[in-house]
Design a protein around this nucleic acid. Sequence first.
DNA 1: TGTTGGCACTCTCTTCTTACGAGTGCTAAT
DNA 2: ATTAGCACTCGTAAGAAGAGAGTGCCAACA
Lengths: 366, 366
Amino acid sequence: MVISERKKKILAAVVDEYIRTAEPVGSKAIAQSGELHCSSATIRNELAELVSLGYLEQPHTSAGRVPTPMGYRMYVNELMAKQKMSLEETEEMNRRLNQKLQELDDTIRDVSKLASQLTDYPALALTAQSSVTVKRFDLIYVDANTFILVLMLSSNAVKSKLVHLPVSVDADMVRRLSTLFNASFTGVSEQEITPALIHATERAADDSLGLTAVISAFVLETLGEANTPTAFLSGENRLLNQPEFRDPDKAHKLMSYLSGGGYILPAAESLGGSDEVRVLIGPENVAEELKDSSVVIASYDAGDNTRGLIGVVGPTRMDYSAVAAKLSFLAAGLSRRLGGGEAPPAGMHNKLIIKEIEDGHERRKG
Amino acid sequence: MVISERKKKILAAVVDEYIRTAEPVGSKAIAQSGELHCSSATIRNELAELVSLGYLEQPHTSAGRVPTPMGYRMYVNELMAKQKMSLEETEEMNRRLNQKLQELDDTIRDVSKLASQLTDYPALALTAQSSVTVKRFDLIYVDANTFILVLMLSSNAVKSKLVHLPVSVDADMVRRLSTLFNASFTGVSEQEITPALIHATERAADDSLGLTAVISAFVLETLGEANTPTAFLSGENRLLNQPEFRDPDKAHKLMSYLSGGGYILPAAESLGGSDEVRVLIGPENVAEELKDSSVVIASYDAGDNTRGLIGVVGPTRMDYSAVAAKLSFLAAGLSRRLGGGEAPPAGMHNKLIIKEIEDGHERRKG
DNA sequence: TGTTGGCACTCTCTTCTTACGAGTGCTAAT
DNA sequence: ATTAGCACTCGTAAGAAGAGAGTGCCAACA
């Protein structure tokens, strides 16, 4: 379906204006905006055709025009001005991205907050679904009843846990376990850690105390957490800024849906490979609750050939241009920081190191 | 000001009914409820007096009565039935509290979520403001450019971090640093870690690579995080369930205030020592934004002589009785698990008891 | 053939009016 | 002191009327 250049201009004008005012746009307003050099009557004719083509609709007979999802789609694909962010904005975003290069989850949480603040819509961020393995184990002997378990993952994250036992273990046992785990659990995927493997290890360690079980439980839990995509949602309340959510019921429904997190899996699956920003308009969304909202999604390179995503939710009357620009920038910033990780230094895998440091510190009672 | 027994009964009936229906309560409704053995005319007389005493008010001349904050206060202090939770509720709560005895922050976050779900109001949870110190250091040598830093805190939390260096260190240096830090940084409060101390350590370690700086920075950050009270907010959107927040502006204002977290410090300061549940009704709140909402707060023993808190925010027409009961139960449950450091919770799986999990996470820059 | 001004028409939104009813306060009777 | 009865008040729901924005269409025009 080819439509004339002028129709496109008019459509763009309608969408722009509607995004700005949230009110149906009349022919007069467009004529006066000065973009087109023709009268309101001409524009009325064009508008009527745009309606019959399905790009616009009228709330009622004598109201202005409002874009349909199809109209928005056309706008997003072809018409909208690719917005550049101002220098200040770019700097501000860079500053805030740089500020905290910390624990991954926290970074992602902050990014979702940032996205929400920048766009003034609710924002969500998803960590990547990956397949992390354990790179090395360390067990630190603390006292007869206690040791610290340290895991270094293939993603170079480090997780640790204090294990307190009702029975005594000796340093030797701890050392033996450490060797064993480094030998048989490193580089192994979550799925490969079977009960059989655990049992074998337990027997090999001559472990009657159930330490093996505890350790492998922690390993499984840690890998599970690291591999499962998690979502962070920020600024839900910004929905209420939008006139389309003045109806508390509507707002509540969408907010509950978002808080519920039911979108996580579908979203994680839809992860495309590109850095491109995708826009899902109204009924293009699968979830019933989003049928008259829009979602803008950018994905970022999280390293290890995995991708996470940042998204923003709002009414279909969303400032696509600005939001897309901002998300794209954010995603690029994240990719730069997380992605493309050069291979971690090799040759450390089967090294075993147990630190035993003189201790003599007592646990302080609370 | 002493008021008659019958007035109290009537006041209680008004509050109960108003909590239930959110509509002004008329004399007829009270007479029919059967509690009192007198006619609606008598009740009208009493109601008129209760109004002039300041316990009730009328939205307009010919409407029913609505409790004033003073009325709610009287209700909370003297009249309300101390609600017992049903057996199922208690069990459900216990089950969910036991479910995850994990990293502290997560526990608290879960508790706030739990509180919100149980009460159907937004809930917040604050971690305790404490003065944690480092109990022991471990440095795990990974390779020439990398080591893992593990901190065990006085709270028995364990934090770890991967440190990647642009220069080479030898295992000996790492060992030396470890000894030094254990000697001079353990048991030391955040405030006592001065630049002078850091410098002294750096010289003693003969550290020209700046490792001391990196390590002490992490220590300071970790202690800072552990000591600063943090708030978790859940279920903000439940506000929209309440008829008094059908006005989106009102709802939005309060939600923004809550999300902003500005209440954290005042709240943390107001921490009383007792296990008692406190109720702040409408204008009793300091924050302007809460002037016509109510807050119910319970505090829990977080160990180390510190206390955190769980709270619930809602309209003044809140089901104080039920909320108080639930929060009190939750707080008691938390205290039992976190506080005192004495007997660990019963009913844990296995023969091993997991005291606490902490984690750290570091990503290499891409 | 495309464009424009004019005009009657449609439909929503606001304002005004009216009617209703819940709940009151007062009074007189018990 | 309590109660029944009754007139009164006032907010709310429902209906009516007017205003205004915007349209569709037609006839004139370039």
